[in-house]
Nucleic acid binder design. Structure first.
Length: 116
DNA sequence: GTTCTGACTGCGA
DNA sequence: GTCGCAGCCAGAA
């Protein structure tokens, strides 16, 4: 059966996939939603090794709201391109907008039907 | 089994 | 708002 690590990774991927289009979330936020607080690096490693083209990895940013990649890097351009394609305002490698933490909470843990 | 590196974070200046 | 330092964790060599 799947090990705890596998589930943690699966949760991270689920949290990333739970990010609504046009919004972004931080590595720490995703890790926390996945039940792995402080494992932001693990999230980054997962995204770096992910082979799922449907994974919205470009919606995952640093806690500063900036792109984790070095400005001008291949991945950096790719991320900016995808974010802009979704309507996210990216300026100078910085993402203008609000994190999808609340939406993540709803998507990962469950819909706020009772207005928790 | 040990060492190194890394798509990170938080705090202080 | 930007820069630098130290800490923590996990995977890869």
């Amino acid at each position: 059966m799947a090990t705890n690590d596998d589930q943690g990774a699966a949760r991270i991927l689920a949290a990333v996939r739970a990010i609504p289009r046009g919004q972004v979330a931080g590595y720490g936020e995703v890790a926390r939603r996945a039940g792995l607080p402080g494992r932001a690096r693990l999230v980054a490693r997962l995204l770096a090794g992910n082979d799922d083209p449907a994974l919205p990895w470009h919606r995952v940013l640093r806690s500063d709201g900036r792109i984790a990649f070095a400005e001008g890097s291949r991945g950096w351009k790719e991320q900016v391109r995808r974010l802009r394609a979704e309507g996210v305002r990216v300026e100078g490698g910085r993402v203008r907008g609000q994190p999808a933490a609340a939406d993540l909470d709803a998507q990962v843990w469950g819909p706020p039907v009772n207005g928790a």
